[in-house]
Amino acid sequence: MARQTLPLNDTLYDYLLTVSLREPEVLRLLRAETARHPRAEMQIAPEQGQFMALLARLIGARRALEIGVFTGYSALWVALALPPDGQLIACEVNEAYTAVARRYWEAAGVADRIALRLGPALKTLEALLAEGAAGTFDLVFIDADKETYDAYYERALELVRPGGLILLDNLLMGGRVADPSNREPSVEAIRRLNEKLCRDLRVDYALLPLADGLGLARRR
């Protein structure tokens, strides 16, 4: 039995996907199109999307929030996991990215579940709080500019209900967070946030070595 997480080489990773991935065709097509995008590295892994959808179903999520949409792959996984009357509010600043997302949301038949808010995400979150949305979300996914993660997290804590989940992507930053000599602003921001999350008693917390590191914070 392994005492630490098993490293994945390409052969083992392909096997993992073969025996576990249940990716609807519309998601497979979106992932394939995104793979040709100049910023394809911003795409989450398919097994992560499937895991997020499972989490949404496990907690009975009806109202979700995504900060950072890109081409809409993660949003589509979550939207498909919501009930027909569920809603995902998706925050993004780049209209060109979301033009791709909209096509696939329509093709999947869930465009009516996704409310896209174009503009700086912090302003959107502040507007939601001003509208009285505190404590009304079941699930929040943060996958945007790393230097603002802490601010997103604090707003998410206000917006999510007790027992709700906040998911934070890229917390391992390709391994760069473990290199103390790396002083990139984005890396330092995530390094500080990782230390904060570990000791934040407002939440139950785990950091999984899934894809580029996925943090799970359950609001107490």
Rank of each mutant, 00 (worst) to 15 (best):
R3W: 10
T5W: 07
L6I: 12
P7Y: 05
L8F: 12
L8W: 06
L8K: 09
N9L: 00
N9Q: 08
Y13C: 00
Y13P: 00
Y15F: 14
L17V: 08
T18E: 13
T18F: 02
T18L: 02
V19Y: 05
V19F: 04
V19I: 08
S20L: 02
P24F: 01
L27C: 13
L30Y: 06
R36S: 15
R39G: 08
E41W: 08
E41M: 06
Q43A: 12
I44Q: 09
P46A: 11
M52T: 00
M52F: 01
A56M: 05
I59S: 12
I59L: 06
G60Y: 01
A61S: 13
A61W: 01
A61V: 00
R62P: 05
A64R: 04
L65G: 13
L65A: 15
I67V: 15
G72E: 09
S74A: 13
W77H: 08
A79H: 04
A79V: 02
L82E: 11
P83E: 14
D85R: 03
D85G: 02
G86D: 08
Q87K: 13
L88I: 06
L88V: 07
L88P: 07
I89T: 11
I89R: 01
A90K: 10
E92A: 02
E95Q: 09
A96I: 05
Y97C: 14
V100Q: 07
V100N: 06
V100Y: 10
A101Y: 00
E106S: 10
G109V: 10
V110P: 04
A115M: 02
A115R: 10
L116M: 15
G119V: 03
P120G: 12
A121L: 01
A121Q: 04
K123W: 00
T124I: 05
T124G: 12
L125M: 15
E126M: 00
L129D: 09
A130L: 03
A130D: 15
E131N: 09
E131G: 11
E131S: 09
G132L: 00
G135A: 12
T136G: 14
D138H: 06
L139G: 07
V140M: 03
V140L: 07
F141L: 15
F141K: 09
D143E: 06
K146I: 02
D150Y: 05
D150W: 02
D150T: 04
A151G: 03
A151D: 10
R155D: 13
E158T: 15
G164V: 06
I166D: 13
L168K: 04
L168R: 04
D169E: 03
D169T: 07
L171A: 09
L171Q: 13
L172F: 11
M173N: 07
G174S: 14
G174L: 03
G175W: 09
V177I: 10
A178L: 08
A178W: 01
D179W: 03
P180W: 08
P185V: 00
S186D: 14
E188N: 03
A189I: 03
A189M: 00
A189K: 02
I190W: 07
R192F: 01
R192Q: 08
L193E: 09
E195P: 00
E195D: 11
L197Q: 12
C198S: 15
D200Y: 01
R202W: 12
V203S: 06
Y205Q: 05
A206P: 01
L207D: 10
A211C: 07
D212N: 10
D212Q: 04
A217M: 13
R219D: 11
R220L: 03
R220I: 05
